[in-house]
């Protein structure tokens, strides 16, 4: 008999874990609330640090889930723990009895309009990292060619007032990547990155930073304080260049806000039904921070990916595979004696 495993969330974590579990011989059912699989990855154009096309990675993931039963545009309406299995009712009317559940609900992007001073949704030239990826993906160009473009790191991250004191981990590398791509498209444009600390921690990230510097991208250590529109409809941006301890202003055609990661609302909905605990940052808490990262406090319920905090894609894939291993061990110990 094949055990049923329910995977909630069809982003990179859910897809990779589903692929591994299905290779192990489990009967994997995946529920994804959106129309298409892939989560934020499906909306991205290229990935840091080496500009691998996001589609390539997504295609690889989709290749692995041929034997997985996928339900898209499907919410988990209710879920509860019976004796030792989970009973889940999906919004498509299907009820699933699963011996283990993997919660891979990922993250929501911080709503950039909450940082009112940046004028997202008010000033035409202000956009987010996700908007920028869409522009790249659809091969659109800005017309007329922009003379100056800025990138703001830490939008809704490291910001207590915005409700998120933590670092979102991926924004620095994303900003630098997008800045390079912008400079490649518009070599004449002045490109600025406004950062508080540059957190280029991963392998090859520092190379990306150096590449950006060599391309002539200007890094300004200081957070943008406010944005306004000039009489020509361009953006006047104010910040401090904290390295010279002086305020700066610059006129830009576009300002790209690196919206950070917030816990997924859909994930919280599932979490509330199972009484899963979240930490102060709103992300789910693992059973411990070292040896049981993929385990929740509930037996049979596991985590993978950004539902336990901001993560890069490689981190997410490691977690997805670890979670699959943990689930396999759990099933073997509890259901096959």
């Amino acid at each position: 008999m094949k055990n049923n495993i329910l995977v909630i969330g069809g982003g990179p974590a859910g897809l990779e874990a589903s692929a591994v579990l299905s290779r192990m011989g489990y009967n994997v059912i995946l529920a994804e609330k959106e129309k298409r699989l892939g989560g934020h990855l499906a909306k991205w154009d290229r990935l840091f640090p080496d500009q691998t096309p996001a589609k390539e990675v997504l295609d690889g993931l989709l290749d692995g889930i041929k034997d997985v039963k996928c339900f898209t545009e499907t919410d988990v309406n209710s879920i509860n723990l019976l004796d030792r299995s989970f009973n889940a009712m999906l919004s498509n009317g299907i009820t699933i009895l699963a011996d283990a559940v993997l919660l891979a609900s990922g993250f929501d992007m911080f709503k950039a309009e909450k940082k009112e001073e940046y004028g997202y949704g008010i000033y035409d030239g202000v956009m987010t990292n996700a908007d920028m990826e869409q522009v790249f993906r659809e091969g659109k160009t800005f017309s007329p060619a922009p003379k100056a473009i800025g990138f703001v790191h830490c939008v809704g991250s490291r910001d207590e007032k915005a409700g998120n004191p933590a670092c979102s981990k991926v924004c620095c590398a994303t900003a630098v990547k997008q800045a390079i791509e912008t400079k490649e498209l518009y070599p004449e444009a002045n490109v600025y990155c406004f950062y508080m600390d540059l957190r280029m921690f991963g392998r090859h990230y520092e190379d990306l930073y150096l590449r950006a510097q060599k391309a002539g991208i200007r890094f300004i250590r200081g957070r943008v304080s406010e944005v306004a529109e000039t009489s020509e409809g361009r953006l006047l941006v104010k910040a401090e260049d904290t390295l010279s301890s002086r305020p700066v202003k610059v006129t830009l055609d576009r300002l790209v806000l690196m919206a950070g990661m917030r816990p997924s609302e859909a994930g919280h909905k599932v979490g509330r039904q199972l009484n899963l605990s979240v930490e102060e940052d709103g992300f789910f808490s693992s059973r411990d921070g070292f040896l049981s990262l993929q385990k929740s406090k509930l037996p049979g319920l596991f985590y993978a990916g950004a539902c336990t905090g901001p993560k890069t894609l490689p981190d997410t894939f490691h977690e997805a595979r670890s979670a699959a291993m943990e689930i396999d061990r759990y099933i073997k110990e509890n259901f096959r004696k």
Binding site: E113, G119, Y120, G121, I122, Y123, D124, E229, G233
Partner: peptide, 10 residues
């Protein structure tokens, strides 16, 4: 300028 955006804030 997107007037609707301001209306949302108001």
């Amino acid at each position: 300028m997107i007037y609707e955006g301001k209306k949302k804030i108001w």
